Amino acid sequence: MSRARLRWNGAAATAAIHQAAARGVRLGAEHVLGVSRQRVPLDEGTLERSGAVSVDEQQLVAAVSYDTPYARRVHEDMNARHSPGRSAKYLEAVLPQESSTVQALIAAQVRRALR
C-alpha cells in the first residue's frame, strides 16, 4: 500500500490566483485601450495620447478613459466626419468586439499562476 501526503495551502493559492487575475484585467484593459486608440478620431493626436487605464486590483475592475475636455463630445457625436478607420464611439464599440480577447488574456494569466 502506498501513501501520499498532500499539503494544501489554500490561502496562498487564492492569493496567487487573485494576483494573476488582476494582471489579466490590466492586460485586458491595455488591449482595449490599444484597439480604441486605432479608432480615435485624429486631428493633432492629443485625444489619442490622453488614453489611460486604471485598475482596482482588489475589486478586479478596470477602466479605460480618455482625458481631454472634448473626449466625450467627440465620442458621442455620430454626425461628425472622421478619417477612414476613425469614428465616434471609438471606445464603446471596442469592448463588445474584444471581449473574448480580454477574457482569454485573464484566463491565460490565471492558468499561468496555477502551474
Rank of each mutant, 00 (worst) to 15 (best):
A16G: 10
V35H: 00
R7V: 15
D43W: 06
V32N: 04
A22N: 03
R37Y: 04
R49N: 13
G28S: 06
A22L: 07
Q19F: 11
E57F: 03
A4R: 12
I17V: 15
E57P: 00
G24E: 05
D56T: 09
E57L: 01
A29N: 01
A29V: 05
A52K: 13
T14N: 10
L42F: 10
E57S: 12
L47M: 11
S54V: 11
R5I: 15
R23L: 14
H18G: 10
G10C: 06
A4M: 14
S36K: 02
R49V: 00
R49Y: 04
N9C: 03
S50K: 02
P41A: 04
R23P: 02
P41R: 06
R7H: 15
A11K: 15
V35C: 03
A21N: 01
R5T: 13
A52G: 07
T14K: 14
A22H: 07
A11V: 12
E44H: 11
G10Y: 02
R23G: 14
G10A: 11
R39C: 01
E48L: 14
T14M: 11
V55G: 01
V53K: 05
A13H: 13
V40N: 02
L6S: 03
R3Y: 13
V35K: 07
A20C: 05
A12T: 13
A15D: 13
S50C: 03
H18M: 07
A21G: 12
L27F: 00
A52W: 07
A20E: 08
E30N: 05
H31K: 07
L6Q: 02
H18E: 14
G24N: 09
A29H: 01
A52C: 05
E44F: 10
G10S: 10
Q59E: 09
Q59I: 05
A4P: 01
A13F: 13
S54C: 04
V40L: 01
R3F: 14
R7N: 12
S54D: 12
A15Y: 06
H31R: 12
R49T: 00
E30Q: 10
L47N: 06
R49L: 06
R49Q: 14
E30F: 07
A16Y: 06
P41I: 07
A29L: 02
Q59C: 01
R23H: 13
D43I: 06
G51I: 07
L47D: 03
G51P: 04
Q59G: 04
A16K: 14
L27T: 08
L47F: 09
A22G: 08
V55L: 03
R49H: 11
R39K: 14
A4I: 11
R39Q: 12
G51M: 06
A11D: 15
S54T: 15
E57W: 00
G51K: 04
R39V: 03
S50H: 03
A20N: 06
L33C: 04
A12E: 15
E57A: 13
A4S: 11
Q58T: 09
D43K: 09
S54F: 12
Q38T: 08
A16C: 04
S36I: 05
D56N: 15
R3I: 12
V32C: 02
R3C: 05
R26G: 01
A15M: 09
